Structures are given as structure tokens and as C-alpha cells.
Simulated assay, not measured.
Amino acid sequence: MNNLEVAQYNSLFLDPEKDRDVINALTAKLVLILGRFTENRKAILDKLREELKKYDLVPIIFDIEFPDGRSMIETVSLLARMLRFVIADLSDAKIVINEIQEIVPANPSLPVQPIMDSTQSEPSILRKHHDNPGYLEPISYEDINDLTAKQETIVRLLKKRRRNLVNICLD
């Protein structure tokens, strides 16, 4: 990131009256997509990201180098507090299991939708999160076309859970 980009980002927070608007704008649209970045898996995650844009969302895939001094899990955990929701592809992704283990307990009002290749099953270690209000039942998909077909259902489920969680927090 160059200095101009940093300056633009910092300028968003210079006006205390606009801080709430900036935070609301970010948290209303940011969606984190977690998964494995092998060639086949990355193509599926990229397609998922493109499809999510059709719902006026801003999907983020962490296929980047992480900030100095922070691990990947620390960075994901920090970002989780600013997200609308998370879609986590569990297919062949052991690191995603660790990320979910960090995110879900620390962010009970954050909807997390696990998805996975239909040839796989939810790792047993994640079943303990079924009691967490933000953790949704995993959705299986056959291939990239099947996942695309289920996209609307996934977004609808996440938005509904988000509304329910927000209402619980306001009560």
C-alpha cells in the first residue's frame, strides 16, 4: 500500500462525526471468504467472490501476505470484528478450521456459513459451534456451478441470521 492509499484510509477517520458512518458502511458490506488456495479451490473462491458482488457486498479473500508482526489467524480475527458475515470453505482446509475456532467464540453475533465439497463432511471439532448463535449448518456443493446455484440461498440465510442476531443484541 502506498502512502497515498494510507492517507486516504486515515482521512476516513479524521472527522469524529463521520466515524460511525464509516464503520457502518464497512460493516454493512464486508464479507470474508475463507478457504484453501490451491488452483482448483482458488477458482471456486474467486467465483464465489464474483457472485457475492451481485448482492452489493464487498467480499474479501485473504490470498495475501499478512501485516508485519501479525499471524494470519490474528489478522483474520481482527478483521472479523468488522464483517457482515463469513463464508468458510472447509474443503481440504485445515487452517480454516483454526480460523473458525478463533472467530466463532470471539464473535457470537457474526454469522459464519461453512460450505464444503459434497465428498467431505464437517470436521467433528467444529460441531461444538452448533450451539453458537452465529454458526450456521454447513452447506455442501457438488462443483462450482452447484455452489453458484446455491449462492442466493447462502446469502439469504446469512442475512436472515444477521438480522436475528442484531435483534437479539438490541433486546
Rank of each mutant, 00 (worst) to 15 (best):
M1G: 11
M1Q: 05
N3S: 14
E5R: 04
E5Y: 01
Y9V: 12
S11M: 10
F13S: 03
L14Y: 09
P16C: 04
P16V: 11
D21V: 05
A25Y: 09
L26G: 07
L30I: 09
L30K: 15
L32N: 09
I33H: 12
G35P: 09
R36D: 08
E39K: 11
R41E: 15
R41W: 03
K47H: 13
K47Q: 15
L48E: 06
L48K: 06
L48H: 08
E50V: 02
K53T: 13
K54D: 07
K54S: 06
K54Y: 01
Y55V: 06
D56Q: 14
D56L: 11
I61P: 00
F62S: 07
I64D: 12
I64F: 07
E65W: 05
G69A: 02
R70L: 15
S71W: 01
T75W: 08
T75K: 00
T75S: 13
R81K: 15
R81V: 00
L83R: 01
R84I: 03
F85C: 02
A88Y: 02
D89A: 05
L90S: 04
S91C: 08
K94I: 05
I95C: 03
V96A: 05
N98A: 11
E99Q: 12
I100K: 01
P108A: 01
S109P: 00
S109G: 00
P111G: 03
Q113H: 02
P114N: 10
I115F: 07
I115Y: 07
M116S: 10
M116W: 06
M116H: 15
D117G: 02
S118K: 12
E122Q: 13
P123C: 09
S124E: 09
I125C: 09
R127T: 15
H129T: 07
H130S: 13
N132Q: 14
P133S: 11
L136Y: 08
P138R: 10
S140N: 14
S140Y: 12
Y141C: 06
Y141M: 07
E142F: 11
E142S: 14
N145C: 04
D146C: 02
L147K: 07
K150R: 10
Q151I: 15
E152T: 15
I154W: 01
I154H: 02
V155D: 04
R156L: 09
K160T: 14
R163I: 07
R163D: 12
L165F: 08
V166P: 02
V166C: 02
C169I: 09
L170P: 01
D171M: 08
